[in-house]
Design a protein around this nucleic acid. Structure first.
Lengths: 139, 139
DNA sequence: ACATACTTTATAATAGTTCTAAACTATAGT
DNA sequence: ACTATAGTTTAGAACTATTATAAAGTATGT
């Protein structure tokens, strides 16, 4: 068993998730990376299928991604698409989004400063602020 | 023929869209309102179906909403949902979004001021900035 | 090893949306 | 008005993402 794998097993156990071989595999795909990773679940399923040494069912991938999201290992981000995107970078940050290529790029939170925020409706409080900078090719 | 209807017919003709009875009906539902209107296409379909004096097919509603969007009469807005939302308010503005009730509330653009914007990636320019303030019940 | 609660799985179901090809219709030119 | 044609609508099928179901499988504490 590799060091990396042992690490995922420990992490899963610590958060009350049983370290099944499916979850470990998904951890490797998601977290064993240099850069942060943007994906939709169906994209993730295709990646796992293409590494055909192990088949993981549709439902398990969905269940696992949502389990990780609930544990805070993944953050669901808002873009105006019919697909939910997730991000391995769970720290507070914003995004560039190229609507043409559908490419998402992280922006460090300190790169954006909001000077004036609106007053929330009565009885509500602001829980989160997400800024999406839509970008296009410069001509 | 009412004044309002004649106005929609003129608008449609001016933008190169034939003023069919379906499009006029959809104009009335969308634009003959005091306040701006947030909707998903499936919500719009339900509204039209409930005003059962005229049936409009699924495909036509989709086609029309997208035709209006392309003409700039509707603006697609970004929220992290599996449904595309549209807004009759096409002026630049931001939103409160209550993830629990799925309620969207407009924020006038002057209520938000961004002090620091990030440098876009090489060869790209910022086309639009959308800020979503996620809100929840204050306890 | 055993019991049990947690997981995975194939499959069906659901929701939103787009595609298709035939029927219909607004409009310009006669 | 009549006609041709390009634009439009339609029902229904198809497609994509996602969730639900219920049975089979598995990790874990004892």
């Amino acid at each position: 068993m590799s060091n990396i794998e042992a690490n995922y097993i420990a992490k899963l156990r610590n958060s009350g998730l049983r370290p099944t071989k499916q979850r470990i595999k998904i951890c490797e795909v998601l977290f064993n990376r240099e850069k942060t990773f943007h994906f939709s679940i169906s994209e993730l399923i295709k990646i796992i299928q293409s590494q055909h040494n192990q088949k993981i069912s549709l439902a398990t991938v969905y269940n696992t991604v949502h389990a990780f999201r609930k544990k805070g290992y993944l953050k669901e981000i808002s873009i105006g698409n019919d697909i939910s995107y997730f991000d391995t970078n769970t720290s507070s940050h914003h995004h560039f989004y190229d609507e043409y290529t559908r490419e998402l790029i992280d922006i460090d939170s300190q790169e954006v400063e909001i000077k004036k925020t609106p007053t929330p409706p009565a009885g509500k409080k602001i829980k989160d602020i997400e800024v999406t900078f839509k970008i296009s090719k410069k001509f």
